[in-house]
Amino acid sequence: MVERRVISVIVLNEHGVLTRITGLFAARGYNIETLTVAPIPGSDYSRLTIVTSGSAKVIEQIIKQLHKLIPVYKVIEHSELVEKEMVMAKIPLEERLADVEALCRAYNGNIVNIGQDSAIIMAADEPKRISNFISALKRFNPKEIVRSGVVAIER
């Protein structure tokens, strides 16, 4: 049975480390749905959050293979995670911005910028809710949608 999994990887923040991770996924045919990466404040490490999918056996191999990479410090695969994702979109100014703003609020979001012909909005919520948000946004004719990928932390 294929299941969705969130894996956090703590890696030494060094040259080429991201290629090692993504190269491993590509070489062994594993799937990456989203990938986020940023340094961990006050350390030499970075944290990657990878959303992937596969059977239990595949997920186990992914974790073991990640562990095998020399600069990998820790692989965290937890079912008790708080996950968040952010999305930004451009909405034409002709749309009903009061409705747009109400929608954003429902998803921990806001209008963050208004330009000459469009407003930029954002929302930050659980990945599934972000997908719902994007569906709901459709009727306001968004010109561009940017998703951040998932970040997660253990409970």
């Binding site: 056996k57 186990e60 191999q61 073991k64 293979q65 562990h67 095998k68």
Partner: peptide, 8 residues
């Protein structure tokens, strides 16, 4: 010695 070999 290689955990990834076990159960692969």
């Amino acid at each position: 010695i290689d955990p990834s070999s076990i159960g692969k």
